[in-house]
Each structure stands twice: as structure tokens, then as C-alpha cells.
Design a protein around this nucleic acid. Structure first.
Lengths: 250, 250
DNA sequence: AAGGCCGATTCCGTCCAATGGAAAGGGAGG
DNA sequence: CCTCCCTTTCCATTGGACGGAATCGGCCTT
């Protein structure tokens, strides 16, 4: 459109506006939004008005903005999350009841794991992940499972980039990462000790679609150090197979 | 933009495109989308390209379109669903374990209930609702609870419109609806026998935010007829109070 | 092999909707 | 009263959006 030195499309702007609602920010003013999306206030104001009209955003009592129900409703039809979530929930519950630890299900998105379902254990370790949260592939147990089962193109792309560290235990040498990935493919599970947080440990296994391909990673987060983390693996496998069976029936 | 005999904004078009993904349709072609959204193919094609670039839509192997993970991720930050969902899930599980019936949590959106969480009971009645599904306020137990606790403006608006029937039991006389709403306010629960489906019965109670206002309705769906549906009410109340307490702690 | 059909994709001349700086309006705080 | 910050409205400008038409490509029928 006119007068935009930027030369962006409306869609880009809208996406930046929506994307400004990250975790932890539940309500924003128009000016906040404009700053976060790097748009002139007047422009933000107009676009926001339209988005509110469409229900993608909502205004609360003091005129602040929130992500709207309509958006949630549309998103609830996203097949990669919805079918998976519904199929997996009962098994996550079993697993969580049995282990009393954080239990989570993640899918691959770009170079991150996106967690689509999570059951937390009240008395357990701090868990950094959230529903709708992300972690880089190389640093999380779920991520390693997904990366190990992804195309070699993605693997090389991740290996070529610098690997950010969260703790001193986070693998950041390409060689070590290659070895880890080979281990995941061989053992069909992975144990990550303190990669994200020194006090936590992740154990994850792949979840297959009925056709065979890996569609998600199922993991638990337990305190670090813990004795015999391998005890969780068979439970994870059982749950993962259950999810695969449940996916067949839809 | 130019040449549009319609005179619609880009946002409107985008929303129509996204809205074309209703329940049951998981993947659509560009032409399908164009038809559903009532847009020229060329226009749909261009917009879709941008949406895919932004991650709001995804293309599968045979170029068909699905709702993208990015959209789901943004929507997962919608506070009215997310906080509620996380707070409510443990209580829904308890309730579902105790009753072995469909258990669901709905919020008010427009003149519908939108179900934001649902646990289904494998062996139980057919349940018409889905996660992300809707039912009209006057015909469902959750809807009546929400309507009874909504502003009188909304109540009058619903009463003024024709009330569609699902079965012969669905209330469709304004007088009867007024009486039902008064009953909900008096008893703090409602029992709906066969309003949606002759073989199903809904029982629902309000869920209050810590500040006191009603933010959701919690309900179970049981076979119709069932003896003593009142037996479920105290369990529902307990769970609803638990959710309120859980909402305080965030 | 040819023809027909349908969907995806690209082109490109037209032109109006989107843009955003500026200014006015509103309310909280000092 | 003044300041500060946010919201909302105005409006002249113009470049991005538009969409009919053409092309490409796959699949089915004859």
C-alpha cells in the first residue's frame, strides 16, 4: 500500500501483530502492540480494529487487547495438533499418574520442538516448557528424538548453525550432536541430563503415525540427578504405541 | 485495494480464508478455499502464498492446505482458553474418572458456547460437541448456565431471535427459556433432558473466576434417560470450586 | 494420441484501499 | 495547570493489491 517505505504486505503486518502476543503477555495496549510489531500507531490502531471486528483479537474492559476466541477456534482445527492431542491425552494421563512427573508431547516446527500438550506434576522439578512453548531441537530430549528422525537436510541445517547452550551440559559440538542422534536412532529413546536446566533431566521417545513416520516426541521431565532414568523408558514406549494405535482409529 | 468491486479489506479476506477451515475439513485445495471464502482463485492463491510464508497455513505433500502450527501457537496464548484449560484439566480428569461420562468446559462467545476442553468417555453416549465446537446458548446445559449469568442485554437478544430446535425437547418458547434461566440462577445448576439429542442429557454448573464473575460452564453429558441426574451435581460443584481456586493461584 | 477438464500458477494494466504523519481528544499523575 | 502517554480521527498521497486472462501441468476419457 501507499506511503509505506517498508514495502510489506498487509498479511505480514497482521502476522507481526498477532505474533506480538508471546508467552507471558496476555494483554497489550495498541501502543505496545505497535512497538512490538514495529508499526506506526495509526496503522496498528486501524489493523487492530479490523482484527477485533473479525474476532481474532478481543478488547477487555480497559481497552487492552487479547488473542480472541475466534482465533483459538480456527486453530483448534489444526490437524497436526488436534488429532494428536486428542489421541494422546489419555495416554499422557496414564503416564503422568504412573510417574508423577511432567509429561509432554512435542511436534517438529522449523528448528524447534513445539509442545502441543503437557501435563505438569505439581510437586516436581521446574519445567521450562509450556503449552505452546518451544525449545531448540539440539537441547531437549523431545527435540533430539524429532531431529534424529527428520530428514538429513534439517539435520545438516541444525548442525551448521551455532548451537546455543543453556547449561554447561548442553551439547554444542556438532560431533557430539551427531553421536547423540545416532544413539537415538539406535536405542529409540534418549536421556538428556541437565541440557536445559541443571536440576532437570529429560527422557523422550518417538511417536509414530500408523503409516510409520515419526509425528511427535513423547517425554517426561524428572529431577536431575535421578537414579535409573531408564525406568521411565518402557512406560514411554507403551504410551507411544498406544497413541499410534489411537491415531489409527480416526 | 484496487479493482475490488467488493470493497473489502485484506483482513476480512484473510479471516474468511482462515474461517473456511471448519470442523471436519482438515485439508483444502486453493480452489476449494477460493470457493468457500468466495474469492477469485488468483486472489486466494496470492493470499494463501503469503499465509503459508507466515506459517499460518501449511501445505502438505500434495499441495493441499492445512491450518498451520504457527497459528495454533499464537492461539495457545489466548488467555480465556489457556489459563482456564490448564487450571481446569486436573479437575476435569477427576470428574471424568468418577463419572465415566463426557466432561466438558465451555465459554461464552457471541450467542454460542465454545467448548475449550473436553474429555470423552469411550463407552458413553454420542456427544455432539467437539473441542473447538459450538452449541447455541439456549439448547445446551453449558449454554444455559452461561446465558443465565450473562448480561440482560445478551439474554434479551437471544430471546428475541428464533430459537432453533434440535429435538422435540429443545426449549423454543421464550417463556419457557426465561423460566429455565431463572431456575439456573436459583439452583446454580441445570439439567437438560434431550435438548440436543434424544439419547443424551446434559448437566452443567457455572465456574467462577476468583473475582466472582462466571467465566465458564462445566458440564457432563450422560445417557437419557438416566436415573437421578442430580447425583452429578455435587461432583460438578466440587470440581468448579476447585477450578476457581486454581485460577486464583496464577 | 488427442482432446477435455480442472486446478495451480504467472502476468500485468488499472486504480482505490491502505498508509502514516499530524493533530485532536482523554485521562492519570504530579 | 502542565506534562506525559495513549487512543482516535483526518486526509492527501501512491504503490501494493487486485483479478481477468493466459499458461502450465496432471489426469481422465474417448
Amino acid at each position: 500500500m501507499a506511503r509505506s517505505p517498508s514495502g510489506e504486505s498487509v498479511v505480514e503486518r497482521v502476522v507481526r501483530l498477532l505474533g506480538a502476543f508471546e508467552r507471558d503477555v496476555s494483554a497489550l495496549t495498541v501502543s505496545d502492540l505497535a512497538r512490538r510489531a514495529d508499526l506506526p500507531v495509526a496503522t496498528a490502531h486501524r489493523l487492530v480494529g479490523e482484527l477485533v471486528g473479525a474476532g481474532l483479537l478481543e478488547r477487555d474492559a480497559d481497552r487492552r487487547l487479547r488473542v480472541g476466541l475466534r482465533l483459538w477456534e480456527i486453530a483448534s482445527h489444526a490437524p497436526r495438533t488436534q488429532g494428536l492431542r486428542e489421541a494422546a491425552l489419555p495416554f499422557l494421563e496414564n503416564l503422568q499418574a504412573a510417574t508423577r512427573q511432567h509429561t509432554q508431547l512435542g511436534v517438529l516446527d522449523g528448528t524447534d520442538v513445539l509442545f502441543v500438550e503437557r501435563l505438569s506434576a505439581p510437586g516436581s522439578v521446574v519445567n521450562l516448557t509450556r503449552l505452546g512453548g518451544r525449545l531448540p531441537l539440539h537441547a531437549s530430549s523431545s527435540g533430539l528424538v524429532l531431529l534424529a528422525n527428520a530428514g538429513s537436510g534439517l539435520q545438516e541445517r541444525v548442525l551448521a548453525e551455532p548451537l546455543p547452550r543453556f547449561t554447561e551440559h548442553t551439547p554444542h559440538e556438532p560431533e557430539r550432536l551427531r553421536a547423540l542422534l545416532a544413539g537415538v536412532r539406535r536405542d529409540h529413546h534418549v536421556v538428556c541430563r541437565g541440557y536445559i536446566h541443571s536440576d532437570a533431566m529429560g527422557i523422550a521417545v518417538p511417536v509414530h503415525a500408523p503409516a510409520g513416520e515419526v509425528v511427535a516426541a513423547l517425554g517426561v521431565v524428572v529431577p536431575h540427578p535421578s537414579e535409573n532414568p531408564g525406568q521411565y523408558v518402557s512406560g514411554l514406549w507403551t504410551a507411544a504405541h498406544g497413541i499410534t494405535r489411537a491415531l489409527r482409529g480416526r
